[in-house]
């Protein structure tokens, strides 16, 4: 059974003067436990695809089905709760909250989930898993890029999501740190998490189970 299913997804950005087609009639499905790389030149719609897949943006047309649930008709509150339970995000620029320390950043998804009492304990456990338990009281500005991305991964996995969407997670890291992050993602995938990752790096893409290529908003491979 596919965990992600996109049917006829089109995304058009409109301004007063210009209409830009970011995605055009995209159909794809991802099986549970897959590790997929999405590749393509800049501006081909990779990030838009990830945003639509992660319910961070609405498609202009088409249906997004996640975990067998049609998300198109969900209300704002339902979408928020669904995203919280099902999805984890890793961004190229980490997007950690600078005014929160590492522990509070990692706890973030759980504060929006009802009935979670051991948030801090769980945050400590995932920080241990990404090798950053000694940095939990630090602020993001006090960490290296690689450490920030590991915090971002800890934040993405703390809620045990079924899917992790990673948008160029190694884009801002040197090759050694990048490799560490990819190894971490492979470990998560081995533990059963489905991962969709946007990347420009062919070497990294080759390590994943499947590669999807995009060009001008369309899937070409």
């Amino acid at each position: 059974m596919s965990i992600i299913n996109l049917e006829g997804i089109t995304k058009i950005y409109k301004t007063d003067e210009v209409e830009t087609i970011a995605l055009e009639n995209v159909n794809l499905s991802v099986e549970k436990g897959d590790f997929i790389s999405v590749m393509g030149p800049s501006g081909c719609g990779k990030s838009t695809l990830l945003n639509v897949m992660g319910l961070l943006d609405c498609p202009t047309k088409g249906i997004v089905t996640l975990n067998g649930v049609d998300t198109t008709k969900m209300k704002e509150k339902e979408t928020a709760h669904f995203r919280n339970k099902t999805l984890g995000f890793v961004f190229q620029s980490f997007h950690l909250i600078s005014s929160l320390n590492v522990l509070d950043n990692v706890e973030l998804p759980l504060i929006y989930r009802h009935g979670v009492s051991n948030r801090t304990q769980r945050a400590k456990e995932v920080l241990e898993r990404v090798g950053l338990s000694h940095r939990m009281r630090h602020y993001p500005s006090q960490l290296s890029g690689g450490q920030c991305q590991r915090v971002a991964i800890a934040r993405a996995i703390i809620g045990n999501p079924d899917i992790i969407l990673a948008d160029e997670p190694t884009g801002n890291l040197d090759s050694k740190m990048g490799q560490e992050i990819i190894d971490l993602l492979h470990q998560l995938n081995q533990d059963g998490t489905t991962i969709v990752m946007v990347t420009h790096d062919e070497q990294i893409a080759k390590t994943t189970k499947q590669v999807m290529r995009f060009f001008d908003g369309r899937r070409v491979e």
Partner: peptide
């Protein structure tokens, strides 16, 4: 940006 991140991880408008 922070508001966007919070919403991505489950915060509602409310």
């Amino acid at each position: 940006e922070e508001i966007g991140i919070r919403k991505a991880f489950g915060a509602t408008k409310r």
